[in-house]
């Protein structure tokens, strides 16, 4: 299926939950409501025509200092899906407000989401409801804060040993 058909199929199934869609630079993207995420992702994986059996990437973006997005949700969680039998891709995004940083987990659908979600928790501080073991992946346990957020300065060091330079 080409990208336009994929988005059409998602829209026909999820009508109101699909907030927006675009195909800039050839990447077909759908912005959905956060509450509808588990259903949308399950449909993407289980529907025969879509067949997205591979979760290529799961990441987040912090739109705190993005010009022109002041009233949009601060974070956005981004799923890149790929289908091995059909060889097509789609990007699913959902906005996450700053005062409610919880996203339903995708681990029951794709086991790789375990580590991707741990990394998002580590770097951004978004919790995943239903994740069995949400601990830091790349940083050490004693680290405070979430470094990929825009309000974390790049050179603020928290050494475990050695001087605080």
């Amino acid at each position: 299926m080409n990208g336009i058909d994929i988005l059409a199929r998602l829209t026909e199934r999820f009508g109101t939950a699909m907030l927006a869609s675009h195909a800039e630079q050839g990447d077909h993207t759908a912005l959905v409501e956060r509450a509808a995420l588990p259903e949308v992702l399950r449909f993407c994986r289980d529907d025969a025509a879509l067949g997205f059996d591979m979760l290529m990437d799961l990441t987040a973006v912090d739109y705190l200092t993005y010009p022109g997005r002041e009233d949009a949700p601060r974070f956005e969680i981004v799923y890149h899906l790929y289908s091995v039998p059909h060889n097509h891709r789609v990007r699913i995004k959902a906005g996450v407000e700053e005062d409610d940083l919880v996203v339903p987990t995708a681990v029951p659908l794709w086991p790789i989401a375990d580590w991707f979600e741990r990394e998002v928790w580590d770097m951004f501080g978004l919790r995943f409801a239903g994740h069995r073991d949400l601990r830091r992946l790349l940083l050490y346990e004693q680290f405070e804060g979430h470094p990929l957020r825009k309000d974390y300065p790049v050179s603020k060091r928290q050494p475990l040993i050695g001087p605080r330079n």
Binding site: R132, L134, R135, E141
Partner: peptide
């Protein structure tokens, strides 16, 4: 289950 309390993890 669910989130691990930081003290136990460390």
């Amino acid at each position: 289950a669910s989130a691990t309390p930081p003290a136990a993890a460390s």
